[in-house]
Nucleic acid binder design. Structure first.
Lengths: 224, 224, 224, 224
DNA sequence: AATGAATGAGCGTTCATTCAT
DNA sequence: TATGAATGAACGCTCATTCAT
């Protein structure tokens, strides 16, 4: 008659406690004892569910990564045009990341820790996947636009910014906006979602240079 | 005052050594002893030039901040249109940050450490300044465009994305692209400079939504 | 009383498991969990049969001590001359100790732990008894020899090495040979039994000083 | 102008303190803090001279091993007959080991710890060397005897106990007598030196089987 | 009786900082 | 100014033991 503890639930409780502590003190200053106290258990018990301190950070990363992966999957499989799905992805990412400020804060520590090649956290792969998904959507979006508007537009757009570079900018902007919010709560992520979409999702609205060609008549965007 | 010069130079040598060590091992794993060895001095001597371990990180941040401030000053005082100056700022920021990978890596640690309100590093202020400068340039750029193209364009663009939000996206994209490069050297910052400019600097080229207004005729960018 | 039997059997199973674990990892590195797993029970159950970790080591010692005591009893009560019984004791001790290498290995830990005066293991008494038994046999053997060969020999031998000292050497040699076997399996205890007997049991064959009798003519060392 | 501390001397002081603590409490129960306090320094300072706790034990072993090696060297290179040198070796070993009871006690812990194959202490090799040296002396001693007394004696002796086995018994007896002294201070090692020599060094006096030659007449055991 | 989750005291080790030289 | 030996507080982790089930 073994005691029945829901290992998975207990693990999640501890992880949530760890995220709160990491967010409050920073990973570097977070003590296992703090995590245990926050979780309402004894220090040693943490080790029944996690391999060690670093393992907690890693688990937090996997949480974030799993959410990201879910968003990417939805964007890839979802309905609507590619532009719509990309816009939804951007909006979703902002919503997701800004939903749990503690977790977002911990992301900074994950970034700092994950920079090492020997880190269990493969940030390079995570962002590579992210970029690849966004780039694919961008290409589809361009194709859609080209179909709707004519070949010249497609050619012109493609000449300007490659999908890969564009994707890097999109992903970067997302993370960069998150970063500013973390440093300064006055930066409202919700208020940045739409600007991100409009500025970076093709066909979603006025881009930065949109005005350039707007009133001018037939002249499309000019390279350089 | 040769002594003063020597002292300043020695301080810089130590800071440079610290940045190398921080970049190599990460701030968390960097030992004062490592820094001293890298600088070719004794451990205790570090304390003759810096208050302590954290002080080294702070000094590294001030280095980065000073370079940023210089760029912002140039952008504010420089010649050319606001759009040109903004483009130059973006290009300069990319160049600057990617010039010293070690320093850029340390930025991750600075971010992680500077997240706390009690940190000596005021990241919030640094990015606030950054955004303000970019927002000012954006507004100027829009004014320039409006002057060149007519009132309707200005109004339309302004309605879509506020300069502050736009600035946050610009700054975020810069930092976010840097981030990706740090995780994955295959991401080439130099190759991202131009895309950043084209996508985010008004009047610099085809924006994401550029195609929207391209072939469509006289109708400017449509909201939503 | 089936319960009693079961309980004793279970206790022995656990002890055997403990001996295997101690032998494998060393007592210092042996975990109660290891013992439990080896015994196929839960960790907490060990405490139903033993007071604690140290108690397991103590029980292992008692096992060894009991076997020794049995050998000593047989030697004291057995048939044959004292020399024969002493030789049998030596051979039996070698056989006994080398029969269970795991247990012999644990002896090292018992020695290390039993060195303290406050240890529950009274090594001093154990070896005192051992020496006393061997010394008694040695004296008897000498008396037998004296009876068979004449007074002068007895007196000479006694003058050289006291029975107590001789016994200490015999016991020491036994333990010392065991020790070497434990460190180096290439040392074959079985091959050392006869040398031990011949070198240290009076009347059992050529001693180290065999040369003493060498000039005596044709009579070489006689087996048995 | 670096502080001048005699590193080697300080290291020895700490090691001596460690040996005292190990002897008092046993290695298993000895705390680094105890060692530091015994040495009159701070806990952390121990690590300036030793890699860790285990390193202290290892260093203690090397001390013992070095003394043994010195004895073996003297025995191999010394003057006198092989029998004399072997006797001197035995006496020297007893003297050496019994000179520092603390160190001898620690030997028990070294034995217990060195039993593992992955231990930094190679007990097997240490005892192999010891046996080899003793075996060589034994063979020489037999040759000397044979030369002095005739071929038949040599053949007879050799037939009985091989030099290797004899050496194992000699080494074992030494260690085994030490062991008994450690458990029971009433066992006087000094009093066992001569018995060891007489019983186990050929030609050194009456061996166990001395009686074998007793029938030869009035010649009792001859010293030396 | 048996379990195994929980506990928490305890220890090895690290390393930022100090300070006598 | 420079050194580097010394310090000792701090912390991650272990694991023997307990006890509710």
């Amino acid at each position: 008659m073994p005691k029945k503890v829901d290992r998975a639930r207990r693990r999640e409780e501890i992880l949530a406690a760890a995220v709160r502590v990491f967010a409050r003190r920073g990973y570097a200053a977070a003590r296992i004892d703090d995590v245990a106290r926050e979780a309402g258990i004894a220090k040693g018990s943490v080790y029944l569910y996690f391999d060690g301190r670093e393992s907690l950070l890693h688990a937090a990363f996997e949480d974030v990564a799993a959410r990201s992966a879910e968003l990417l999957r939805e964007a890839a499989e979802g309905d609507g045009t590619a532009a719509e799905r990309l816009a939804a992805l951007v909006r979703g990412a902002v919503t997701e990341l800004s939903a749990d400020r503690d977790l977002a804060r911990v992301l900074l520590d994950i970034w700092a820790a994950g920079r090492d090649a020997d880190s269990p956290v493969d940030m390079a792969a995570a962002y590579r996947d992210y970029r690849a998904a966004v780039a694919a959507l961008l290409e589809q979006a361009r194709a859609e636009q080209a179909r709707a508007e004519g070949v010249s537009a497609e050619g012109a757009a493609r000449a300007v910014v490659t999908p890969d570079a564009h994707a890097a900018v999109v992903v970067g902007a997302l993370e960069g906006c998150l970063l500013q919010w973390l440093f300064d709560p006055a930066v409202d992520p919700a208020a940045l979602a739409e600007p991100l979409v409009r500025l970076l999702v093709p066909g979603a609205g006025a881009g930065a240079g949109a005005g350039a060609g707007s009133g001018s008549g037939g002249d499309g965007p000019r390279p350089r």
